[in-house]
């Protein structure tokens, strides 16, 4: 696959990152903002796995495949796996902060929080 067609996966990743950032910039609700951060992070999964794809490759598992079969790059898969765990835990922490923030400020609109400025 050549030319522009072969660029699509990488471009989709870039698009997701920028869309997620747009969501963060315009968000009116911190829970929504944390969701947008999760969207932005999925860009990294898409990019990593696209980078590691090999034409005609199968999954890098040899339990019922010949050790000589062509497989896709397993390294990016391991990295993505780590990345997913990191993302989930960070999301949990941020949501915990949002929950407490709401208790103290009675709002989850990031533009109405004004105790730190100047």
């Amino acid at each position: 696959m050549s030319g522009l067609f072969g660029l699509v996966p990488h471009l989709v990743a870039g698009w997701i990152l920028l869309v997620g950032m747009y969501g963060l910039v315009t968000s009116r609700n911190l829970v929504h903002a944390v969701g947008c951060l999760a969207v932005a992070q999925s860009a990294t999964y898409v990019l990593l796995l696209s980078v590691g794809f090999r034409r005609g490759g199968t999954a890098p598992v040899f339990s019922d495949a010949s050790p000589h079969s062509v497989v896709v790059d397993p390294v990016v898969q391991a990295l993505t796996l780590t990345d997913i765990v990191v993302g989930a835990t960070v999301t949990a922490l941020l949501l915990a902060l949002v929950m407490q923030l709401h208790k103290r400020h009675a709002t989850v609109d990031p533009d109405r929080l004004n105790s730190l400025r100047g």
Binding site: V8, G23, R28, S42
Partner: peptide, 15 residues
């Protein structure tokens, strides 16, 4: 991939 891109956009725009 294109579906993912669309769903991601919708996710962000769902306020």
């Amino acid at each position: 991939l294109l579906v993912v891109a669309v769903v991601a956009t919708v996710a962000v725009l769902t306020r």
